[in-house]
């Protein structure tokens, strides 16, 4: 009996936000990210017989997604990338003689922060995994999406004090979990 099993019907609720953040930091476009995630789920479904149950569902989906992201870059590089090179360097003389290139790369400085933030994001998601589903969903709605208390209460048919109890438990668990894994 393999350790892990696949439950495709739960994928969207459980993993789509996690995969989305993973993708968005790599492709920088939310539409493309959504397409890639959709492709990932479908590819996962197609090859679910190949799943040996050694890795967790999430790890397995990420490995598919990584390949999809690489494919995506291959595709755009084959057309657009070549044209760009030609535009930058029109003739040999001006090659490498651009003021912009002598200025230090402003993005270089933030690269480390970006990596750190991504690791933090992953830590947050694995902590969210340890909450029960209702807590996790409501916590995400309230904290990340910034929904009004009232809107969430209506949607889940709970009172405001119910909501705050859920939020309190979620925050407490999240803080403890992150303290262990990150802070």
């Amino acid at each position: 009996m393999p350790k892990h099993q696949l439950y495709p019907e739960t994928w969207v609720d459980k993993y789509s936000d996690y995969l989305f953040n993973f993708t968005i930091s790599r492709v920088n476009n939310s539409e493309i990210a959504k397409d890639l995630i959709s492709e990932t789920f479908l590819a996962g479904l197609k090859s679910k017989d190949n799943f040996k149950g050694e890795a967790s569902e999430r790890t397995w989906l990420i490995s598919i997604l990584k390949r999809k992201i690489i494919d995506h870059y291959r595709k755009i590089n084959s057309n657009k990338g070549k044209a760009e090179v030609r535009i930058t360097y029109k003739d040999d003389e001006s090659e490498g003689d651009w003021l912009e290139e002598r200025v230090s790369d402003p993005f270089g400085k933030t690269a480390e922060d970006k990596i750190e933030n991504e690791e933090l994001g992953q830590a947050i998601f694995s902590c969210l995994d340890s909450l029960n589903e209702k807590q996790a969903t409501i916590f995400k709605m309230k904290t990340i999406d910034g929904f009004d208390t009232e809107a969430i209460c209506n949607e889940y048919n709970i009172t405001a004090s119910n909501l705050w109890v859920i939020i309190h438990r979620a925050r407490k668990a999240m803080a403890e979990c992150l303290e262990k894994n990150w802070l």
């Binding site: 968005i24 947050i124 992150l178």
Partner: peptide, 20 residues
């Protein structure tokens, strides 16, 4: 609790998570 709670809020803010 307050200190932890603030830390959590900061962590969530800097991680800049997005949802679908």
């Amino acid at each position: 609790y307050t200190a932890r709670n603030k830390k959590l809020s900061n962590a969530l803010k800097t991680s800049d998570l997005k949802t679908i």
